[in-house]
């Protein structure tokens, strides 16, 4: 099985008046094409792990390989390219930019790098994703004028626009009601099934975690349990 993520002895320490050890030596391997859950209570290090896998933060120690690329010591330029081309990140809060329409927010990753697609190809892809995520009618609207669920679905579209190898979702349903939570989680599995995209979902929701291929439980910065659900 091809590995999409390989982590060796990952340590993250936040320096301050009192140093905080967020991750205490994580070792992890994830296969390509599955949906994973990183599960744990607040403060367990889930978000820190996800941020490092996504190149949003740097490790203090250890080695991280994502999509066959060692990102441990990448400079800022190459990390930016990595974030744009290999990873799709979905935050708990949508973080859409208010000054741009839903459509413009979604194509932003493609616009940043240009990439291998032309504008019309990207536009077609937006329409395709918008259909799957049921946000076609809001593409021309601004984020402040659509619902929370629609914003989060738009953020998911944005994360998928460059066809990343892996999507990292940090509590993607944390701010959603149960109906929208179900919609979003179902969509992840649908896209995984249709496109083969790997998903890593950080959640403290046990129901979501139990639906995933593998549930990786973190506590106090360490992996305490890995459960294969199927």
């Amino acid at each position: 099985m091809e590995k999409i993520v390989i982590v060796r002895n990952l340590v993250k320490i936040y320096e301050g008046k009192v140093d905080t050890v967020a991750l205490k030596g994580i070792n992890l391997e994830l296969d390509k094409g599955y949906v994973y859950a990183i599960y744990g209570q607040s403060g367990s290090g889930k978000t820190t792990l996800l941020n490092i896998l996504g190149g949003l933060d740097k490790p203090t120690q250890g080695k991280i390989i994502v999509g066959n690329q060692d990102i441990t010591h990448l400079d800022s330029k190459n990390l930016a390219i990595f974030r744009n081309t290999k990873v799709g990140f979905i935050f708990q809060f949508h973080y859409l930019i208010s000054e741009f329409t839903i459509f413009e927010n979604i194509i932003m990753p493609a616009a940043i790098r240009g990439g291998k697609y032309s504008y019309s190809q990207v536009k077609n892809r937006v329409v395709e994703l918008a259909k799957i995520l049921d946000i076609e009618e809001i593409l021309g609207k601004y984020p402040d004028y659509v619902s929370g669920g629609q914003r989060q679905r738009a953020a998911i579209c944005r994360a998928l626009i460059n066809e990343p190898d892996i999507v990292l979702a940090d509590e993607p349903t944390g701010n959603l009601d149960s109906e929208n939570t179900k919609i979003v989680v179902d969509l992840f599995f649908k896209i995984n099934k249709v496109k083969g995209t790997t998903f890593v979902i950080v959640t403290h929701n046990e129901n979501i975690a139990n639906q995933c291929y593998q549930k990786i439980e973190l506590r106090d910065g360490e992996i305490v349990k890995i459960v294969n659900n199927y």
Binding site: I81, R83, F89
Partner: peptide
Amino acid sequence: YKDIGVLKSLGMQNFE
């Protein structure tokens, strides 16, 4: 500030 962080997370480089 936050928008800068979002743009960076989407792959925008520092000079951009």
